[in-house]
Amino acid sequence: MVTIEAFSRLVSGVYAAALTPQLWGPAVRDIHREMGGTVGTLGMAPDGTSSIIGDTTLPADALASYAQHYGRLDHVLTNVMKGPVGAVRTGSELVAPRRHSEFYSCWLRPNDMGDGLMVRLTGPPENYFFIVGAPPRTEFFDTPDRVKLMSGLIAHLQQALRTQDAVAPLPAGDGEPAGVLDVIRHGVILVGGDHLVINLNAAAERICRAGDGLCMRSGRFAAMNTAAEQELHGAIRNALTDGGSRVRRGRSLSCRRPSGVRPYVIHVLPYPRRDTDVHLGGQMAVVLIIDPENEPEPATELLQRLYHLTRSEAEIALQVMRGVDLKQTSEELSLSLSTVRTHLQHVFDKTDTHRQAELVRVLIALCP
């Protein structure tokens, strides 16, 4: 079973890669090694043909042969991309039944990918996917612990990809990272030495002003609880210098809130300096603050447009996302229970989902 420290390290790596795409390789490598796999791949298939974003161990000739020939025979990825967003698929389900195929014999097995775990992270237009591959063994790769770890990483990978896509169109060398990151709903703070705040986005400013566990003191980012403050300062120190060892590391932590609502989740990451950042001084850290209480839901109009839902179907989909049961939904929308069930089945069909949990994952992934 993965430890909390190991999981925090994996998550920190994922969010660091969201801001610096060159770090996807190390982040993906860390994940597949923690799972005991031999290959990790983050990719996208926008038009039915895949491309690799962060691959760790596949040699160049394997990638070339896939692009030239074997990609057309890839029944595994085809089935993953036809399935629901956020569902973990397994080698025992998708690979084992077709071990006599050319794709398995000539490409998967020679590249140590005769087993593994796969997940479709997003829908169109990007169609991101993530795969951890492993060689075929006596026991299948899909142990409960590995599936649980993969499932736990999905939401973080999805959020990191949304962050990356929001930042990607921005011009390189922008000296105001917080200004550009105002498009991100999570709080983002750029912190320098002595925990001094260099800049922050609008969401972070709202969080600090609320004074519900986090705040600003004399221009420094701080927590209101002593224990949380010590942990936060230690994480920032590690991201800046790690005690002078020159190995800068990220860390994740939580911060309880006096209001009693769910704690903030905080990821502290080293900020990768560029030559154009010399005017900002020494080393810096990026603090990402996630408020579990501030998870916006997609508008009914967006659901209608993306999945061709009717107004009633979209409203029922949002009720499911809020955790409202079908009986209460029928009362609130003045519809019979049988009508609600019929509409929900239409929602499943149109969103290519089969259970309410799958539907919730799809709806959460749509939040900008």
Rank of each mutant, 00 (worst) to 15 (best):
V362E: 10
E176D: 05
W107F: 07
V261E: 09
N111C: 05
T163E: 07
R72D: 14
S338T: 09
S50K: 01
E102C: 01
D61G: 01
Q328N: 12
V132Y: 04
D174I: 13
L280M: 15
S218A: 12
H267C: 11
H308P: 13
G193C: 03
K350S: 13
A299L: 10
A62F: 01
F348G: 10
T300C: 09
A45M: 05
A27K: 03
L161A: 09
R137V: 01
R217L: 11
L157W: 08
L303Q: 05
R251P: 03
R274H: 13
R249G: 06
M216T: 07
R273P: 06
A172V: 12
W24P: 05
L196H: 05
L190V: 05
G91Q: 04
A18V: 02
Q283D: 11
Q328V: 15
G211A: 07
E5P: 10
S218V: 11
Q159T: 08
G175I: 03
V320W: 10
G234W: 00
G71V: 11
Q230P: 08
G179Q: 07
A178Q: 05
G193N: 12
A18D: 05
A96R: 14
S92P: 01
G260D: 03
A227I: 12
V265M: 03
H75S: 10
T241E: 14
R237I: 08
G116Q: 00
Y264V: 04
A317Y: 06
E139L: 13
C208V: 15
R220I: 15
L73S: 07
R237Q: 10
G213M: 01
P124W: 02
T49R: 12
R146V: 13
I290V: 15
A203T: 06
N111T: 04
L269S: 08
S105L: 13
I31A: 09
I154Y: 00
D212K: 01
L117Y: 00
